[in-house]
Amino acid sequence: MPSQDVTQRFIFEQADVRGELVSLNESYREILARHDYPEPVKALLGEMLAAAVLLSTAIKFDGLLVMQARSSGPLSTLMVECSSRQEVRGIARYADELSGDTLSELMPDGVLAITVDPERGQRYQGVVALTGTSLADALAGYFDSSEQLPSRFRLLADGQMARGFMLQALPANRETDPAARQETWNRLSTLADTLTVEELKALDNRTILHRLYHEEDVRLFDEQPVCFRCSCSPERSGNALISLGREDAFALLAEQGGEIRVDCQFCNACYRFDQAALQTLFDKAREHARSLH
């Protein structure tokens, strides 16, 4: 059986190809427990959670990776965040009446955006049309068109567990002949296509790799833990109110009957600010501003 909430990298010793396997159980269920999503939405959100973890491990950065799909269809938004520490959270927005259960049916004419927001350095975003019949197809199309890195994905989620498999070509290092590189990629990706949903769901990572690549020289790295963690906090909510400015914040307080509620859409936490709390916020902000001068 797959391990609980981990991601695990593998590389081919004789080829410029890497891969990743992710398993989400408790973290996935914890995200779903905060919202009453229909089954098709649960599945697609789980697939995107797995995909975000796969992609975050492929990028060497400290910060946040955000995947967001938007459409004019019944499923208007899927949004997932994964930090460089593999802390995940996610949310979906959908119509009351859903028609269909596949990505192409729920998100027709959709757009997929992948944003890397590092703690230091420049923010980067790539946007492509949400093509194909599945999120795995859309991601492969994204990397083929935007990153020029041939990639293959297998994703599944059923409301209880989410699993993901990624195979990705790397820049030339071990193999420099273009024809040999293409032949190797074709062989490894063809073998990856034989992985069934049942095997991905039931087998541990080492068994999956042996099943697919027992004739290849593959190195499997140690598992890395994944967890659900929401980045909301009283401090962040307070900073959002401070950004409104003192006059507008107190006007909002009056409009709200003496208490401002700041709700987190991801985890449903609610932060409340009455007049005393709001006064304290702006007093501390003023003191901080003075200390900088």
Rank of each mutant, 00 (worst) to 15 (best):
V22I: 03
W185Y: 12
T194W: 01
T176G: 04
I260H: 01
Q168N: 08
P74V: 05
E175D: 12
E147D: 09
Q86G: 04
R85V: 08
P108H: 14
D109H: 15
L45D: 02
L167G: 03
N268D: 07
L244V: 10
G238R: 00
Y37Q: 13
Q125S: 07
L24K: 02
Q148Y: 07
V128F: 15
M79W: 14
S71H: 13
M161I: 07
D137G: 05
E97W: 06
C270P: 00
P178G: 04
P171L: 07
F282Q: 08
Q256D: 15
L44G: 02
Q14I: 06
A289S: 15
L156N: 10
A254P: 07
V226G: 01
L155I: 08
L212D: 02
P38V: 06
R272M: 09
M48W: 00
T190D: 10
L106S: 03
Q160N: 12
Q279P: 06
G164H: 01
I114S: 02
L188K: 06
E20R: 09
R187C: 11
V22Q: 00
A277L: 01
A169K: 08
D193F: 10
Q86M: 14
P118K: 04
D222N: 09
S291H: 08
E198C: 05
N186C: 09
D5G: 03
N25E: 15
N173A: 13
S134Q: 04
R34Y: 02
M79L: 15
D248G: 11
R187D: 13
D217L: 12
T194C: 02
E97T: 10
A172G: 14
S84I: 03
V17S: 10
A276Q: 14
G159L: 04
G90D: 01
T77Y: 08
N239T: 04
A15G: 05
V22H: 00
V88N: 06
R211M: 15
R290I: 11
N25M: 14
L244Q: 11
F10W: 00
L220E: 09
V111S: 12
L44H: 12
